[in-house]
Amino acid sequence: MIFQSHLLSMTVYAFFVSVVLSLIRREDPKSRLKYGLSLFLIMVVGALAFGWFMYLFAR
């Protein structure tokens, strides 16, 4: 069984999605890198931030 950690699973998933979408949505290498990195950070940091936000409402 691999990826017992949900954080690692999420990070790897975000990486592949960012790579594919940056190649589809942007034309030149520089903007691809910028777009891919932004997407990756939005997905990972956003999920972590939302996770901590939900922690406020934990029983």
């Binding site: 069984m1 691999i2 990826f3 017992q4 949900h6 699973s9 998933y13 592949f16 594919v20 589809i24």
Partner: peptide, 25 residues
């Protein structure tokens, strides 16, 4: 029964959805 079931299913579905975008590209 595996804890990774949900994430595994999301990986497979995500791959399929991304492939639609790739084919349209």
């Amino acid at each position: 029964e595996r804890v990774t079931f949900e994430f595994g299913t999301a990986y497979i579905a995500g791959a399929g959805l991304l492939n639609y975008l790739i084919a349209i590209d």
